[in-house]
């Protein structure tokens, strides 16, 4: 038996928004520790890794490990039926071929349940080694989304260049060239507005804009985003999810032949 209760179901709506542009379907692996998901986009250029710890839920029970293969378009249809303030309960029997989503209004006067068929998906995962990154940049997530959106007008690729002075995002194409430089913030009232850089070695890498733009669909999950970079390894774009855990996106760089 699997059962997870979430008082504010808006979190799951935001998670779904954050993954459905990159993934058509995904396996949600449920265990005592929580819910995890790892999946690559169709072209295998990027990878999504989601971790929602069990202690973040208002109630969580998972008697046996359960892998739920879910069509994300179907799940989106169901989650659209929930109000943002509804209380969500997800339930599945062991070895079930369906999962139930129940939405209760705050005053408990309206209760809806939706039964969704599960699908069989390949269960293969990639092993991601622990990496000490040369540069770790933290910045407001809204600022990162804005930069990705603005630069995608100028080219298909963004060059991210990090030194101890700051981080530079550049794009070039038919229109011309664009450069956006962010320095570390000296003083900020709110931690979430800060730009901070931890640098061991300067790094410059090139990435496809359209994936970065897809990652920014997670902006609503966290006021800050963390970019981790080392020479010739995938970029990691991480959004913390409150008391639950995180969503991480890995993106393979473009390299000069």
């Amino acid at each position: 038996m699997f059962e997870a209760r979430l008082v504010q179901c808006s979190m799951l709506k935001k998670v779904l928004e954050a993954i459905k542009e990159l993934l058509n379907e995904a396996t949600f692996d449920c265990s005592d520790a929580g819910i995890q998901l790892q999946a690559m986009d169709n072209s295998h250029v990027s990878l999504v890794s989601l971790n929602l710890r069990s202690d973040g839920f208002d109630k969580y029970r998972c008697d046996r490990n359960l892998s739920m293969g879910i069509n994300l378009a179907s799940m989106t249809k169901i989650m659209k039926c929930a109000g943002n303030d509804d209380v969500l309960t997800i339930k599945a029997q062991d070895n079930a071929d369906n999962v139930m989503f129940m939405f209760e209004s705050q005053n408990q006067e309206k209760v809806s349940d939706y039964d969704m068929k599960l699908i069989n998906l390949d269960q293969e995962h990639l092993g991601i080694p622990e990496t000490d990154y040369s540069c770790i940049i933290k910045m407001p997530s809204g600022e990162f989304a804005r930069i990705c959106r603005d630069l995608s007008q100028f080219g298909e690729s963004v060059v991210i260049s990090c030194t101890k002075e700051g981080v530079k995002f550049s794009a070039a194409g038919d229109v011309g060239a664009a450069n956006i430089k962010l320095a570390q913030t000296a003083n900020v009232d709110k931690e979430e507005e800060a730009v901070t850089i931890e640098m061991q070695e300067p790094v410059t890498l090139t990435f496809a804009c359209r994936y970065l733009n897809s990652f920014t669909k997670a902006t609503a999950l966290s006021p800050q985003v963390q970019l981790s970079m080392s020479a010739d390894v995938p970029l990691v774009v991480e959004y913390k999810i409150g008391d639950f855990g995180h969503i991480r996106y890995y993106l393979a760089p473009k390299i000069e032949e």
């Binding site: 690559m40 072209s43 295998h44 250029v45 990027s46 990878l47 293969e124 995962h125 990639l126 092993g127 991601i128 080694p129 690729s157 090139t206 496809a208 390894v233 995938p234 890995y250 393979a252 760089p253 473009k254 390299i255 000069e256 032949e257």
Partner: peptide, 14 residues
């Protein structure tokens, strides 16, 4: 000329 790498250039199946 730039080539787009994939996850498989960096990570192995677990």
């Amino acid at each position: 000329n730039q080539t787009q790498r994939t996850m498989h250039n960096y990570f192995e199946w677990a």
